[in-house]
């Protein structure tokens, strides 16, 4: 399992897609923090907390997870991958775990960067910043969300296998369906794996609100995410185990 994990992390790091999406996550997160930090005048502790939770790693690591798994079919590398690692379920687990690890590392870099930059900007404007304990609280939530959605992305990619369909589907759900559900039936939206449940862990809903009653408690949200991941992996694992690779 260690070998597989090492191989998957190496695989992840050795394409330009990874570098491009990592750069995009960092730039987008920094852009939001810099612009909001410089232009906004409405600074409560909750708002500052929300600013530092603006880590876009979750979105990009999920896309990377989808690409990393569904891309095996797109580039027809899945045959070589299965020859090297014939236990398909173990391979799926290793891939999920590697994207979870990558999510944690990437989120650590992005979150710490935006916290440093955001704190400098706010301090230069004479605005109160967050305590170290609060910053650490935001940090672990960001890391946890990135790890969970990274693994989820692998599960989605393994189940659907069509990279384009999977990416468009996830983006549609995240940016159209989730906000619509939050507006119409927030109690249902709170369980969404692309919006409500990660939002419950971080404490922000689909509209960026931090003081909302519609979100799940963080512990419950984590369990819901584990449930979604388990469901996708079980379905993908069953499809992988039984299927012929012709």
């Amino acid at each position: 399992m260690t070998s597989l994990l090492r191989a998957e992390l190496l695989k992840l790091r050795t394409t330009r897609t990874f570098a491009a999406l990592v750069a995009a996550a960092l730039v987008l997160s920094l852009l939001v923090v810099v612009l909001t930090g410089l232009l906004s005048d409405d600074w409560t502790e909750e708002n500052t907390r929300g600013l530092f939770a603006a880590d876009f790693t979750g979105l990009f690591i999920m896309l990377l997870g989808i690409i990393g798994m569904a891309g095996e079919w797109r580039h027809r590398t899945i045959t070589g991958t299965f020859l090297a690692a014939p236990n398909r379920v173990r391979l799926l687990a290793a891939k999920g775990l590697s994207y979870a690890v990558a999510g944690v590392v990437l989120s650590l870099i992005v979150t710490v960067t935006i916290m440093v930059v955001g704190t400098v900007i706010l301090a230069s404007r004479g605005i109160d910043t967050l305590s170290l304990a609060t910053l650490l609280d935001v940090l672990w939530r960001n890391l946890l969300v990135s790890a969970l959605v990274g693994a989820l992305g692998v599960g989605v990619g393994a189940l659907l296998r069509n990279q384009v369909v999977a990416i468009i589907g996830v983006l549609l759900i995240g940016f159209v369906v989730d906000p619509a559900l939050f507006a119409l039936v927030p109690e249902v939206a709170a369980y969404s794996p692309t919006g409500g449940a990660p939002g419950g862990i971080i404490g922000i809903d689909a509209f960026g609100d931090t003081d909302t009653d519609t979100l799940l408690a963080p512990g419950v949200a984590v369990l819901v995410m584990f449930g979604w991941i388990a469901a996708f992996f079980a379905a993908a694992g069953a499809r992988l185990r039984g299927g012929d690779l012709v």
């Binding site: 190496l10 695989k11 050795t14 394409t15 330009r16 580039h75 590398t77 045959t79 070589g80 090297a84």
Partner: peptide, 15 residues
Amino acid sequence: SFHPGRTARNHLRVL
């Protein structure tokens, strides 16, 4: 087949 964006050396290092 091989990932077109990966070098031969990295492809083999993964394996």
